[in-house]
Design a binder for these strands. Structure first.
Length: 654
DNA sequence: TTGCGATCCATTTTT
DNA sequence: TGGATCGCAA
């Protein structure tokens, strides 16, 4: 498609935004109103106006959104958009850091992921049980970094009950930062922070960046947190800012995003022009009616009322089962029936879940019934324990100072536990070369000879990543097989093939490691090539920006929407509402909701004083918005095709 | 100190 | 369901 015919597809509002002459602007757009399309169109327009594609930087919040945009750009603009960059904030910052390490005061560094962070916190925290768990400390720390707030504020927000240990927590945080400094570790937040801090203090640096980033196109603006804003704000007046967002889809509060941020845009950017996109091209009116209703009953005024451009209509279906097993099986079966009867593609179907945990039930059913699927948002290939074990060898080869990797590697061997490993690691990071490290370990005697030999071999092969992975596998496979024998080793073993496959694209170990800390890739994404016709199982957070003809939203029970953990916290419950809103608005033609509880509605939970502390979003859903089907337990077992009776649901508010 | 077995436990979301 | 944690023996 040529870019001119692509521009012709836009409606007036989209066209106006895409061709604006404003230096800075904010596009407020509801779900399905063509946000991504407008961003792509903006890029096309700027290119047609003579701005080189490689001076346009698209920023997104998640990797998935970034790759979605890349696909759309390729689809619509083809080669004319070559050189256009679309990346997450993190990848963008890494790009800057790599291009000019000195400017950011960096020599060597290793990027550590959340697991590594947790490991450090675990070491620092010790075994005494008073302090919050390592993972919780990690969350508090990260929240404080992302919102640029005081520790006490972060504790209050993330884990209020930990307030009494504030001074101890502060001590741990201080040591954590020292430790990172000593080892040249950068955590996720450091990547953004280093860039932001340097940009703010150096106009030269801002100027340098703005030369190849004349335009920033920012997607999902509502999810930007103060740290990310600090990254963008130095460019006000230097580069163009074109930001797109929807406050009703703000679901990253836990990462420090405030859904009202977007409303402050005008205050922060003096000459900003605001555009609004209101027409929804994605869904049927029935789907939008339910979505609109969900926002309407919120105490927060979202002031959103999506209107469908589509004329065809269909009400969402709500299927109720007696247990989650039947719920999951029914979904798998329904997928099969649709595929057979309607001759549709698996591709047109998506199952949206709240968490990786929730996906398991569905996954099992899909596997049992042989429905081909990919799961996006679960445990990532390069985050799985066995792969990290293997990568720990590459890490120490790449950086002998990486004590976290040393510990992971050392604890694999018999006779070395936590304590022994950390003592050894202290000595190992004093060594200058890997050779020295190996000698030290040889002397110690617990790590097998042949493994040390392989380690030495790897050190001369740092620019042959695949060979290193093969060597590492040779060194570890026996030990790993024993370690994971009870946790389906045979399946895990296959993952190493995928790792090798990924490694082929990379020349240097360090580069390979760096790339995959930021993009650990879900296992099924590697296995299944993108054009495969398969069902997508996805977490709602990963699903922003995607759409399918038929969407299933299971687990619509009490304590799931809103989630039990959010109960009693007004902001958290409202964020849950937006999460559900995002899920509902993914569907183009059909929306199928399910839950596993035969009671048609539930009581609001009541506290000691009889005040409601939580509610279930679907408690008062007007009956005309949904078609409800109740599946009795025995029906499923007796005869799957037996007609099911329809009843009305909830209170009719008409 | 390690490593195993037993018991308990709760189970968001992403870079 | 499996993951984290605890207690105990070697």
């Amino acid at each position: 498609m040529s870019s001119t015919s692509f521009m012709a597809e836009l409606n007036d509002q989209q066209h106006q935004a895409a061709t604006t002459t404003a230096q800075n602007c904010l596009v407020l757009a509801g779900a399905g109103c063509g946000k991504t399309k407008t961003i792509v169109a903006r890029a096309a327009y700027l290119i047609s106006q003579g701005i080189p594609a490689n001076q346009i930087q698209i920023l997104t919040f998640t990797r998935r959104a970034a790759s979605e945009i890349v696909t759309r750009v390729e689809q619509y603009l083809g080669t004319s958009a070559q050189g256009l960059r679309a990346s997450t904030f993190h990848t963008f910052c890494m790009y800057l850091l790599r291009r000019n390490r000195q400017a950011f005061g960096l020599e060597n560094f290793s990027i550590i992921d959340r697991d590594d962070q947790i490991m450090i916190f675990r070491l620092l925290r010790g075994k005494d049980n008073i302090l919050p768990k390592a993972a919780e400390l990690c969350d508090i720390y990260s929240f404080a970094r992302n919102t640029q707030c005081k520790l006490s504020v972060a504790i209050e927000k993330v884990l209020p009950e930990a307030m009494e240990f504030k001074s101890e927590i502060a001590e741990v945080m201080k040591t954590y930062e020292q430790r990172k400094q000593e080892r040249s570790f950068l955590d996720y937040d450091d990547i953004l922070s280093i860039v932001a801090v340097n940009l703010q203090s150096s106009p030269t640096l801002v100027h340098w960046v703005s030369q190849f980033c004349r335009v920033f196109l920012v997607d999902e603006m509502q999810d930007t947190n103060p740290l990310q804003w600090a990254l963008l704000s130095p460019f006000i007046g230097k580069s163009q800012l074109f930001c797109v967002g929807d406050d009703a889809q703000s679901i990253y509060g836990f990462r420090g995003a405030d859904f009202e941020n977007i409303h402050y845009f005008k205050d922060n950017v003096s000459n900003a022009v605001i555009y609004t996109l209101e027409k929804n091209y994605r869904s049927t009116q029935g789907i939008l009616d339910l979505s609109n209703w969900l926002l309407d009953v919120s105490p927060i005024q979202y002031d959103k009322h999506l209107i469908a451009a589509k004329s065809q209509n269909s009400r969402p279906h709500f299927h109720i089962f007696s247990n989650e097993f039947e719920e999951a099986n029914w979904i798998a079966q329904d997928l099969i029936i649709r595929k057979k009867q309607n001759n549709v593609h698996w591709n047109d179907h998506m199952v949206l879940v709240r968490s990786g945990y929730a996906a398991r039930h569905i996954e099992r059913a899909l596997i049992n019934m042989s429905v081909p699927y990919q799961f996006i948002g679960g445990t990532k290939l390069l985050e799985s324990a066995h792969v990290k074990d293997l990568l720990s060898m590459l890490r120490v080869v790449s950086n002998t100072q990486d004590d976290i990797a040393w510990m992971r590697f050392l604890t694999l061997w018999d006779g070395i536990g936590d304590v022994g490993a950390s003592k050894l690691a202290v000595n190992l990071i004093k060594c200058q070369t890997l050779e020295e490290c190996c000698n030290h370990l040889e002397h110690h005697g617990r790590v097998p000879q042949h493994v040390l030999l392989i380690l030495k071999q790897m050190s001369v092969l740092t620019d042959t990543v695949v060979a290193c992975i093969e060597l590492a596998f040779e060194a570890l496979h026996e030990q790993l097989a024993a370690k994971y024998q009870k946790q389906d080793w045979s399946r895990r073993e296959k993952d190493f093939k995928l790792v090798k496959q990924l490694a082929q694209k990379h020349a240097q170990i360090s580069e390979f490691l760096e790339a995959y800390v930021l993009d650990p890739i879900s296992t099924s994404e590697v296995e299944q090539s993108a054009d495969h016709d398969i069902v997508t199982l996805i977490t709602i957070h990963s699903a922003k920006g995607t759409e399918r003809k038929v969407c299933y939203v299971p687990h619509l029970t009490v304590n799931q929407y809103p989630h039990a953990r959010a109960q009693g916290d007004f902001d958290a419950v409202e964020e849950e509402r937006r999460v559900l809103y995002v899920a509902l608005t993914r569907a183009q033609n059909e929306l199928v909701l399910t839950k596993q509880d035969l009671t048609t509605w539930a009581m609001d939970q009541i506290d000691d004083q009889g005040r409601p502390v939580s509610s279930y979003f679907f408690n008062q859903v007007p009956s005309h918005l949904l078609d409800v089907t109740i599946h009795k337990r025995d029906e499923f077992f007796e005869n799957k095709k037996k007609p099911i009776k329809k009843i009305s649901f909830g209170i009719d508010l008409d």
